[in-house]
Design a protein around this nucleic acid. Structure first.
Length: 807
DNA sequence: ATAGGGTTAG
């Protein structure tokens, strides 16, 4: 680029002879044409040359004009190119072809098509058809490309090797079966093009493309591809790199490496393909090793190499190495490519330096969509959701990825309603919905437990053919799990064409939340048998599953092998789950022992787990100890006061319970009011304790009274230990009879059709008496009742609960 | 003037 700039400058200075001005311009533009790289200075240069033409009154003839248009197109000056083109009274076929290619490459297939259609048949040629066929391919419209190919043959324009290459690329967009590959192969042989190198290259890349389809047999197809490759009479650079990248894309790095090692003169492109392959697989060490070898071979890392390495550093947290790459690219004479800057932004925020990432962005002379999206992800990744929204609103152009990041950002930060609102706006704006966007929206439904909305989205997903999407499938598993439909979660998992670690983790978590500990463990073991390596999330979920099901030894076992076998250091969250596991089971001293011996200072979640165990197992002394720690760590947290007061009340120490309540008042801490809700005919009905606000509350109380008589006959005894204040026995019984979860369930019994499952949600943990009462209700009414409390799911059926009275 | 390989945002 710098050479081109110098050449342009000298020729601008020397233009004294008006007769040769045209030649000067031609020379200048030729220099720019050779620069294939996308650089911000190239745009400035075209502007200055163009400006010079205008001020000097030079009227360019068509070949110079065409070249000017071409350079504008290639250097982010599409608007200027369009302006120039539109003012040509009768553009020749070269100008038309240039602008068709540019419109297609910039994602304006409609404009390209318009120019093509207005091109008279008399001036059309094969090149012009080729450009339009490629244009369709670039915009993912394989069918239109093939239709145009047929049209071209019908009108007797002779296809050339460019045509075949383009048509094969178009077919690769549509073909996803092994059958199609064979047919294409035959067609190429019949066309007599089977000996043309670039056509065979294109055919190989069709095989590669088909091999990565989830329903194809990748090994067989890659074998065919490699056979084609080895049987070629002579291979060019592209042949080598196509087969190498083919193996890389199909996750067979060993095969790729074998071909790569067989290359006499290893191209930079091939090195880059290997490096990015290793990075994607998480083999950071191998990637860095390749980088070293490449440099020993005398090749300099270019922007592709640097972006891959930077991305590896970002994922592995190798901040210092990343900084070294940054220093390296700064030392080189070349202008830093925007993609390197983008990878740097990602490096900074993934290493926890969000503000520095923003600074890199602010200092960029040239930003593209990816730069904006990288910063947006930075805010979302750091949970700075408000800043993310402000930034999102500022974005000059938003593609579907930006919308998706924002939607899932809201969802992941518990803002389900905002997320769904944004998803609807995305629809209204006519932005193409991809599977990731659906995944974000479905995650919001999981947050909101919006069963109907989520089901509708699932249906639309199938309609659009996204049902094989990994991200959407994973979101669905979590959604169905959190909405209480565990069977559907399992079905999604089983019908997904391919699953990843996230899918396994999601289903294990869902089973755990529903209390199916044995099944969760079985699934986890099955995953290990399939040689899938668990991550820290897997252990978090499987230990919780053990905790919910009371499988203490199992849980301990998993905690132990996490480090001894899988070399994962347990984090605070893992310790919290372990303590929860022990405390729930009443092994309070062991739990306390873990707290005292853990390597870091125990935080609030550990003490809270212990305190909850003390409340359940009525250990007042230890409970007080845990509560005191919590008062220091999180003095404003209401749960501590409630649990401690509960612990005293359960032991009959009403005075102490009262003291805790007073302390809570004095500290200005408010109890989060318990509320339960149920959806009936598209309306969400919310109930508070002792509710008087709901319009049909009287009917609910009446029916509850009726039920209580029946339940008593079957042996139900109200358990008044869950009342916090001391009062007369009768009052106590009344106090617990009006808990919100009971009211919501009874409302469901009254309103929902016979046989329909009742799904109630509660913000806090379900109360012990309610748990018992709902068991009786499920028997008396012969109904399946599902309650999701703040913690997990309870499936009540025929007088029993799936949690086995253990929660 | 048209095809074809390697990079970055989820």
């Amino acid at each position: 680029m710098k050479n081109a700039a110098a050449a342009v400058k000298t020729s601008l200075l020397n233009q004294s002879d008006t007769r040769t001005i045209a030649n000067f311009y031609a020379v200048q533009l030729q220099f720019l044409c050779r620069e294939k790289k996308y650089a911000s200075s190239a745009f400035a240069l075209v502007r200055s040359i163009h400006g010079n033409m205008i001020t000097s009154g030079f009227r360019p003839r068509s070949h110079i004009l065409n070249r000017l248009i071409d350079i504008y197109c290639k250097n982010s000056g599409l608007v200027y190119a369009k302006h120039l083109f539109d003012r040509i009274p009768q553009p020749d076929v070269v100008a038309r072809t240039t602008i068709i290619a540019a419109y297609s490459a910039s994602g304006y297939p409609k404009l390209a098509r318009e120019v093509f259609n207005k091109t008279p048949l008399s001036i059309r040629d094969t090149v012009c058809y080729n450009a339009m066929i490629t244009g369709y391919s670039h915009n993912n419209d394989g069918h239109a490309a093939i239709k145009l190919f047929l049209d071209m043959r019908w009108k007797s324009f002779p296809p050339d090797e460019y045509t075949y290459t383009s048509v094969l690329a178009a077919l690769a967009l549509i073909a996803d079966h092994e059958m199609h590959c064979g047919q294409l192969h035959c067609a190429v042989v019949k066309s007599g093009m089977a000996s043309v190198k670039c056509v065979v290259n294109a055919l190989i890349s069709v095989y590669v493309k088909c091999a990565s389809s989830p329903i194809a047999s990748s090994v067989v197809l890659m074998d065919s591809a490699s056979k084609l490759f080895y049987e070629m009479p002579e291979r060019d650079d592209l042949s080598w790199t196509t087969i190498i990248t083919g193996y890389v894309k199909n996750d067979d790095l060993d095969a790729a490496r074998k071909v790569f090692d067989g290359m006499d003169e290893k191209l930079l492109v091939a090195w880059n393909a290997m490096i990015s392959g290793y990075v994607h697989k998480g083999f950071i060490f191998e990637a860095l090793d390749m980088l070293r070898k490449m440099q020993s071979a005398g090749l300099k890392p270019d922007e592709f190499t640097c972006t891959s390495i930077l991305s590896a550093c970002a994922d592995a947290g190798l901040f210092l190495l990343g900084k070294q790459v940054h220093a390296y690219v700064r030392r080189t004479e070349e202008e830093i490519h925007v993609s390197v800057h983008n990878a740097l932004i990602t490096l900074y925020w993934k290493c926890g330096r969000v503000d520095e990432a923003r600074k890199v962005f602010d200092n960029l002379a040239f930003k593209d969509l990816v730069s904006w999206n990288a910063v947006l992800s930075a805010y979302v990744g750091a949970g700075r959701i408000n800043e993310a929204k402000l930034f999102f609103d500022e974005m000059p152009e938003k593609n579907s990825l930006a919308w998706t990041v924002m939607i899932s950002g809201f969802a992941q930060n518990g803002k389900g309603e905002e997320a769904l609102k944004l998803f609807n706006q995305m629809r209204l704006h006519g932005i193409e919905l991809c599977d990731y966007a659906f995944a974000g929206a479905i995650t919001s439904c999981a947050v909101l437990a919006a069963l109907e909305t989520g089901c509708q989205l699932h249906a639309q997903l199938i309609q659009r053919g996204f049902d094989s999407s990994l991200s959407a499938g994973n979101a669905l598993i979590t959604f169905y799990g959190r909405s209480g439909v565990i069977e559907a979660a399992r079905t999604v998992f089983l019908t997904m064409p391919c699953v990843d670690l996230v899918s396994w983790n999601a289903l294990i978590a869902a089973l755990g939340q529903h209390g199916y500990g044995a099944q969760a463990i079985e699934l986890f073991e099955q995953m290990l048998n399939e040689h899938i390596t668990p991550d820290r999330i897997s252990f978090l979920t499987v230990i919780s599953a053990c905790s919910h099901a009371g499988l203490v030894e199992r849980g301990r076992h998993y905690f132990n092998i996490m480090h001894s076998v899988y070399k994962i250091n347990p984090g605070e969250d893992h310790y919290a789950r372990l303590i929860d596991l022990l405390s729930r089971a009443g092994r309070l001293l062991e739990a306390k022992d873990v707290i005292q011996t853990m390597p870091t200072k125990p935080g609030a979640p550990m003490w809270e787990a212990l305190l909850a165990g003390c409340r359940t197992h009525r250990n007042v002394d230890l409970g007080v100890e845990a509560a005191e720690k919590l008062f220091e760590l999180t003095p404003q947290h209401d749960g501590t006061y409630i649990l401690l007061a509960n612990t005293f009340a359960a032991a009959g120490r009403w005075d102490d319970a009262a003291k805790v309540r007073k302390l809570m008042r004095d500290q200005g801490v408010k109890k989060e009011p318990g509320c339960s809700w149920i959806k009936v005919e598209n309306t969400v009905h919310v109930f508070l304790v002792d509710d008087t606000a709901h319009p049909e509350i009287q009917a609910v109380y009446n029916y509850l009274e009726e039920l209580r008589l029946k339940m008593r006959k079957m042996g139900y005894v109200p358990d008044t230990q869950y009342v916090l204040q001391d009062m007369e026995a009768e009052q106590k019984e009344y106090a617990i009879s009006t808990h919100s979860e009971k009211l919501a369930v009874v409302f469901g019994l009254l309103k929902l059709p016979r046989g329909a499952t009742i799904r109630v949600f509660k913000n806090l943990r379900i109360c012990g008496d309610c748990h018992n009462a709902i068991k009786f209700m499920s028997k008396v009414e012969a109904r399946e009742i599902i309650v999701r409390d703040g913690n997990r799911f309870h499936h009540f059926r025929d007088g029993e609960c799936s949690c086995g009275n253990y929660w």
